[in-house]
Design a protein around this nucleic acid. Structure first.
Length: 705
RNA sequence: GGGCACUUAGCUCAGUGGUAGAGCACUGCGUUCACAUCGCAGGGGUCGUAGGUUCAAAUCCUACAGUGCCCACCA
């Protein structure tokens, strides 16, 4: 009996040195060889803060990566980080705000410089956190979305799409965030229910005592009305159609028109039309060639077109307009009304529909090349070239793709890829570098952050570079593992852009995981004080315990509830395994019987082990990570430790070879889940000359039945 | 308005056709012997409700109820 091992497992002695050992030996790099590689590109975390517990779900990727590495596949897991356009700009602006500054005090160049430094600092810390979790990422291939070669590739795609007629600049109705002072795509607008009013306004008919009543949620937009619309089938208004309304407060004469969009059963059946500030009204305006009058400015203050209300905040003007109409006896009635307002996903400000000139991707148009972004992306999933698991998300994907609208990709931000377009008078130049000649001015806007991250699977691999050997070898990648909350934002765009730019699918399988919630199933948030910092708990209970807690007993694609209790339970499991190791290694008997006859118990545990090898292998292959984890947990604790080891105590000298065999195989099976403790015990078994394999566990051979 | 998911032991959740499971919590017993971050024994569920398919349903189908989420340009 050697008695070297402490009675309690201490992860602090183990984790860091082992990670360094793996990294030093180059274990994370894909090995050479002709076998089909297994590749995952890490969904790049946003370089504007610390990692949260959601990022710890990367463990699912590490499980697959470590599994395939042990099976001998050339295995690549490529790390990187995202500059995260609007979000990072908002975060950094808030920091400046605390110092009483705005980005305008710094100027564009300095703001970019400081924000860049900020992201690089965050990136460094995040990478340390990923290492602490044991993630076996190939750091030699690390990428950042603003790296020069990545940017070049992003611009190349922009140019190709532009020349293909699938990127255009146009004046459209868009979502405007007054706080961020930028346009947002439809996806970046969230909808929130709000108790509000429906105001019924009386609009006088010209040369008549008649009035027409219109209902609105936003009285302030009336200043920009250019028509009143009724349904052509609505008999109530037949005699008023084509008459003229004198718009109250503005005295502007506007027509009463017919449009089948109007629902006679809602409100009064007559709709005020404000083409400049409502998407539906905008379309009606286009159909009827109505003028569009912008009465709300980009700063959310009323414009000079708003007459007496010019310069007022839009909400203040609403109050005044209501009061004034009441004085004039032009307010028919007010009803309580539940409405939904669009708010900026990043800062929570109510967005304002505005008409603006922006860059768009025509997602459901066929280009000169014959390619069609949405159609081709639908076909790839329909034909099962790309599989989405769980499959219920395929339906959601199809539904979204089939109803997709053009994608606004310009942003009035300073942080991000500046749009690769230059203007000189009427001339437009599109390219990745400054055009030859003088007096060109680059478009001041930047690209939607998802336009660059949407190209991540191939830009990270050196697509279009002089050295594109990684692209040739690892693309298409094997699995894209990410949260279902970014299916549209990211996964859909990667499929569209990937197929478009490279002619190949970006990945074969999409695996979507759920959100991490607290132990009661509530969303984690600072205000509820239920946030779990993955690094804090990893420090306390060990990274292995945190990893196991995240997968244990969770179903594919479902939200996972994780609390400290569960992590503690998995820490106890680490300790159980440690003590199994102590028993087998540290208390090994002096004499061991070679080739003893097998008892019933021996046969039983070996049979169980075979089954576990099978179900863990099948479980990981079929993305049932939670089930495989439970199988291992139960086998190791309740079969191996509680039953077999207890039984072995009476016949230790005979049982030792089987004890070693079962432990060794268990370590292999558990390694993808709990890499540190398994590797540590493996090394100890090696020292004790219980293992013939020369390699470290991270590259040991996966067991077969 | 459309869609998706969930409803299983006190709590949090796995389990998708073949005798009801895990973790935590609970009850009783157990201190030398790998581990009290432990062991042994035990209590506890008509698997949301109502129908249907099947030799067999928590598991498939239909309806209903409750909860959560996503999408959507009805003023």
């Amino acid at each position: 009996m050697s008695n070297n091992m402490e009675p309690i497992y201490n992860h602090k002695n183990v984790e860091k040195p082992l990670y360094e050992l793996w990294e030093k030996k180059g274990a994370f790099a894909p090995k050479k060889g002709g076998k089909k590689p297994f590749t995952i590109i890490l969904p790049p975390p946003n370089a504007n803060g610390r990692l949260h517990i959601g990022h710890a779900m990367y463990v699912l990727e590490d499980i697959m990566i470590r599994f395939h590495r042990m099976r001998g596949d050339p295995t690549l897991w490529l790390p990187g980080a995202d500059h995260a356009g609007i979000l990072t700009q908002v975060v950094y602006e808030r920091k400046l705000e605390k110092k009483g500054k705005s980005r305008h005090d710094l100027g564009r160049e300095e703001f970019f410089k400081q924000t860049y430094a900020f992201t690089q600092e965050n990136k460094k810390q995040m990478y340390e956190q990923l290492r602490a979790m044991g993630f076996s990422l190939d750091w030699t291939r690390e990428k950042f979305t603003l790296d020069p070669e990545i940017s070049k590739a992003v611009y190349k795609t922009f140019k190709t799409l532009y020349e293909d007629g699938l990127i255009y600049r146009g004046t459209r109705m868009i979502n405007w965030c007054p706080r961020c002072a930028t346009v947002l795509s439809d996806l970046e607008v969230n909808h929130k229910d709000k108790e509000s009013n429906l105001w019924f306004l009386k609009y006088p008919i010209k040369n008549s005592t008649d009035q027409i009543i219109v209902a609105t949620q936003r009285p302030e937009t009336m200043l920009g009305d250019t028509a009143v619309a009724v349904n052509p089938k609505d008999k109530r208004y037949k005699n008023l159609v084509r008459k003229t309304v004198v718009l109250p407060l503005m005295k502007r004469e506007i027509p009463i028109i017919e449009d089948s969009y109007v629902d006679p059963s809602f409100g009064s059946g007559a709709v005020k039309i404000t083409p400049a500030h409502d998407p539906n009204d905008y379309e009606i305006g286009e159909r009827h060639k109505l003028p569009s009058i912008q009465v709300i400015g980009l700063d959310d203050k009323m414009t000079k077109e708003a007459g007496d209300y010019s310069g007022l905040d839009k909400y203040a003007s609403r109050k005044q307009i209501i009061a004034r109409l009441e004085e004039l006896n032009l307010l028919e009635k007010t009803e309580r009304y539940k409405t939904s307002v669009g708010i900026c996903e990043r800062c929570g400000t109510v967005v304002e529909p505005q008409v603006s000139k922006q860059w768009f991707v025509a997602v459901n148009k066929t280009g000169k090349s014959g390619k069609n972004l949405a159609k081709d992306a639908i076909a790839a999933v329909r034909s099962k070239k790309i599989k989405i698991t769980p499959t219920r998300f395929e339906k959601i994907y199809f539904n979204w793709m089939e109803n997709i609208h053009d994608w606004c990709i310009s942003r009035q931000l300073w942080w991000g890829h500046q749009i690769p377009v230059w203007y000189r008078g009427d001339e437009v130049y599109v390219g990745s570098e400054h055009p030859p000649g003088e007096a060109w001015k680059q478009d001041p806007d930047t690209l939607d952050t998802w336009f660059s991250s949407g190209q991540w699977p191939y830009t990270t691999l050196g697509w279009g570079q002089t050295d594109d050997s990684d692209f040739k070898r690892f693309y298409p990648t094997t699995v894209m593992e990410t949260g279902y909350d970014i299916l549209f934002f990211w996964v859909a765009r990667m499929i569209m852009l990937g197929i478009y730019a490279t002619g190949k699918i970006p990945f074969e399988t999409v695996y979507l995981h759920g959100l991490v919630r607290d132990e009661k199933g509530q969303k984690m948030s600072k205000s509820k004080d239920n946030v779990i910092d993955p690094l804090e708990v990893a420090e306390k209970y060990g990274a292995d315990a945190v990893r196991m807690a995240l997968v244990f007993g969770t179903g594919a694609g479902n939200d996972a509830n994780v609390g400290e209790h569960k992590i503690k339970g998995m820490r106890n499991f680490s300790n159980k395994l440690w003590n199994i190791g102590r028993y087998v290694i540290d208390t090994k008997p002096e004499k061991v019987k070679e080739n003893p006859r097998q008892t019933k118990e021996d046969q039983w545990i070996l049979r169980e082990l075979d089954e576990v090898v099978n179900s863990v292998t099948r479980g990981i292959e079929s993305y049932h990570f939670g089930i495989a984890a439970e199988v291992l947990y139960n086998f190791i604790w309740h079969d191996f430790a509680d039953k077999y080891i207890e039984d072995s105590k009476n016949r230790r000298e005979e049982a030792q070879p089987i004890l070693e065999h079962v432990l060794l195989t268990s370590l292999k099976l558990l390694h993808p889940y709990m890499p540190f403790i398994t590797e540590d015990l493996w090394q100890k078994m090696k020292e004790a000359k219980m293992i013939e394999e020369k390699e470290d566990l991270i590259v040991a051979v996966w067991p077969t039945k």
